[in-house]
Design a binder for these strands. Structure first.
Lengths: 122, 122
DNA sequence: CATTTGTATTAGTAGTATTAGTACATTATT
DNA sequence: AATAATGTACTAATACTACTAATACAAATG
């Protein structure tokens, strides 16, 4: 299922997240379907369960999956819809970044603003 | 001139940048006026010349000052104008960040997008 | 020619993200 | 009731990156 070769240069939990997202979007994993257990994937990829857990937590925060303790993790009913919304939001935000760069702000400036605004929201 | 007490929690080069920007905006440093030498400030604040250099480099990138090797660094003729533009751009960008967060993207997502788009521009 | 200027290169340090090891709590199964 | 399987939380080790410093270089001025 999760046949994938881990590469360097990108965190493992992120590679795994990209892979699972891909499976959901392509329809290879149906909505409502149960995902493999954390330890299952960890064993298969020879990585730590916590790394998989981090991936699941992020996917759940995104709304692509939901997890029930002692039961399992499942593909969210509206996974595709949410993913599409996220993609659109990402594209729009990327354009905002381009504009800001063109107007003279630096990458550091933008990173700082993102951090500050994010912190304020908590 | 640069009487300021360095505090923790914020990089030195950034504190210095904020201070100099303040001086320029408040009109305490006129446009065209010569800034103290890198080593001058370094000595006065008991920090490394390279840290001051980093501040100057950033201010020059912003367009607030310009440096001439073996001569000195000077306040840019349009410093105030540029600073105002940067502030406006920052505010607009901050709003874009708020929107993206509200639409479900995470701080990590946004930081990644900023990095990717910045890298693409080079 | 010596001094003053900005700049580049290298290295050490500290803070932070990533990953792993381990333990916990809850639910299903037998 | 007991065992196993699940997601989750906590701690520690490691890797990575930003910050700062030490030093050296290059050019202009007097």
């Amino acid at each position: 299922m999760f046949s994938m070769k881990l590469q360097g240069g990108m965190p493992i939990h992120e590679q795994l997240r990209a892979r699972i997202t891909e499976l959901i979007i392509n329809g290879e994993m149906k909505e409502g379907e149960k995902l493999p257990a954390v330890r299952e994937i960890a064993k298969q990829l020879t990585i730590n369960p916590n790394t998989v857990q981090k991936t699941y937590a992020e996917l759940e925060r995104q709304g692509l999956i939901y997890s029930v303790p002692a039961k399992g993790s499942y593909v969210s009913p509206r996974a595709k819809y949410i993913n599409k919304l996220n993609q659109q939001t990402s594209e729009t935000f990327a354009e905002a970044v381009e504009s800001a760069l063109a107007l003279g702000l630096s990458e550091e400036d933008l990173l700082k603003i993102v951090s500050e605004v994010s912190q304020k929201q908590r």
